[in-house]
C-alpha cells in the first residue's frame, strides 16, 4: 500500500501500476480522501456552484467522488487521453470539510474492445468510524 498525505496525495515513489496487468478483483487503497474547507471552496468555485450548502462547511457530494477518482487515476498512471465512459455514485450522508475519509477501490471490469481498454473501478468511502458515506463506480476508456 502506498502512503498518502491527509488529502490523499500519494507521496511514495513506488512505480505505478499497469492496468493491463491487473486482474478483475484487484484491490486499491486504502488511501485518504478528504477536502479541506479551502479545497472544497475551490472545487465549488471551479464548477460554478451557485446553490447548495456552503462549500466551506460541507463538501459538494460529487467532489468526494472526483477526489477519489483522481487518486485512482494517479495510482494507475493512466495514459493522457483517458476519458470517462460512465459514472455512478451513491451518497449516504453529507461530508463535512476537513473530515478524513478512507477510500478503497476494486477493479470490477478490465477489457479491450476495438483497441480501447475499458476499466471499471468501484470505490467505497468510509468515515473515521468505518461507516460508508459514499460509493462510486467509474468506467474509463484508456487511451481511446
Amino acid at each position: 500500500m502506498r502512503p498518502a498525505d491527509l488529502y490523499g496525495r500519494l507521496i511514495s515513489a513506488e512505480p505505478r501500476l499497469n492496468i493491463a496487468d491487473l486482474e478483475i478483483g484487484h484491490e486499491f487503497g486504502e488511501y485518504s480522501v478528504g477536502l479541506s474547507s479551502e479545497e472544497s471552496e475551490r472545487y465549488g468555485a471551479a464548477v460554478g456552484r451557485a446553490c447548495g450548502p456552503d462549500a466551506s462547511e460541507w463538501v459538494p457530494p460529487m467532489a468526494v467522488v472526483a477526489a477519489g477518482l483522481s487518486r485512482l487515476i494517479d495510482e494507475l498512471g493512466l495514459a493522457g487521453g483517458t476519458i470517462h465512459a460512465s459514472q455512478g455514485a451513491r451518497f449516504l450522508r453529507p461530508v463535512a470539510t476537513g473530515e478524513e475519509l478512507t477510500a478503497t477501490a476494486v477493479l470490477r471490469g478490465n477489457s479491450v474492445r476495438r483497441g480501447a481498454r475499458f476499466a471499471t473501478l468501484d470505490s467505497t468511502f468510509r468515515d473515521a468510524s468505518g461507516e460508508v458515506v459514499a460509493t462510486s463506480s467509474s468506467t474509463v476508456i484508456v487511451n481511446p
Partner: peptide, 20 residues
C-alpha cells in the same frame, strides 16, 4: 449533481444515487 441538490436539498446528499 448541483441540479439534484437544488431539487432535493439535503435528501440527495443523504441517500441519493446517480448513474450516467
Amino acid at each position: 449533481s448541483e441540479m439534484l441538490e437544488t431539487a432535493f436539498p439535503g435528501a440527495y446528499a443523504s441517500g441519493g444515487e446517480l448513474s450516467v
